[in-house]
Design a binder for these strands. Structure first.
Length: 256
DNA sequence: ATGACTGAGCATCTCAGA
């Protein structure tokens, strides 16, 4: 099975990039983040023509996630279980496909809205941990893919790319990420690339791409039975060099 | 000294991203 995640920074700006990448990479399931539109504006027909069915959890202007699948799937949740019903931020989609539960997330950045904004990030991560724990307790094969907005360790950002106070690297963010790993989940990219930089994001500012100043914040976490069959886990750097790119690249995972 | 991101929206600035 081939699974992927990509923060596209507006699907309307990146429709052609995604269509081209689907044809080249041929994932079974692709999770998208920051689509930045509501469902009616999502270019579903373009992807349907390539054999992909879309489920869109949209929101005007900000956030927004979707899943594109060329295999049959059932939608299980369109919001993170445990969040209050009045929370309208579109950041979560959970489906069942290929004999597993597959979750796509756009985890809150946590740098806006002051300490309340950061507390929201941590609360969201704790609910994600609870959801993953429940699925693992039921022996459900599980993959969580998306933009986690966390650099798990100091090896996951270029030196000096972010201040120590940034929400992506604060100790509590990293502790919450580790608590996901402690459930028994495997960080797929790190498992296959234990040393050195494996960036998934390069800021538009400051010539970060030509200088290769990046972050690793887009991740795929796998439950044990999926992790033991992992063969490929790699960000596709080529996409960052295309015209009008997203600031994130797709991350592709293959499981035998 | 020079030049310094991108996208959306009740838009020509503000917010958010990371």
């Amino acid at each position: 099975m081939k699974l992927a995640t990509w923060n596209v920074n507006s699907i309307r700006q990146r429709e052609g990039h995604v269509a081209r990448w689907l044809e080249r990479a041929q994932p079974d399931v692709l999770f998208l983040q920051e689509i930045k539109c509501e469902a009616p504006a999502f270019p579903a027909a373009r992807f349907a023509a390539l054999g992909y069915t879309a489920e869109v959890v949209g929101q005007k202007a900000y956030n927004g996630v979707a899943v594109l699948s060329r295999v049959p799937f059932a939608v299980v949740h369109r919001a993170l279980p445990g969040l209050p019903a009045e929370d309208a931020q579109a950041r979560y989609v959970e489906v069942r496909a290929l004999g597993a539960t597959l979750i796509g997330i756009y985890l809150p950045n946590g740098n806006s809205g002051g300490e309340a904004g950061y507390a929201y990030k941590l609360a969201w991560m704790d609910l994600l941990r609870a959801r993953a724990a429940a699925l693992l307790a039921a022996d459900e094969p599980l993959a969580i893919l998306g933009d986690f907005n966390v650099c798990p360790t100091e090896a996951d950002l270029s030196p000096g790319a972010l201040p120590a106070t940034d929400a992506l690297v604060r100790p509590q963010s990293r502790a919450a990420f580790r608590s996901l790993l402690w459930l028994g989940l495997t960080d797929a990219v790190r498992a296959l690339h234990p040393g050195g930089p494996v960036w998934t994001f390069w800021d538009y500012q400051g010539a970060c791409w030509p200088r290769d100043i990046g972050l690793r914040i887009d991740h795929a976490l796998l439950s044990p039975t999926l992790a033991e069959r992992l063969t490929v886990a790699i960000p596709d750097r080529r996409e960052r060099g295309e015209d009008q790119p997203s600031d994130h690249v797709p991350v592709l995972v293959e499981i035998d």
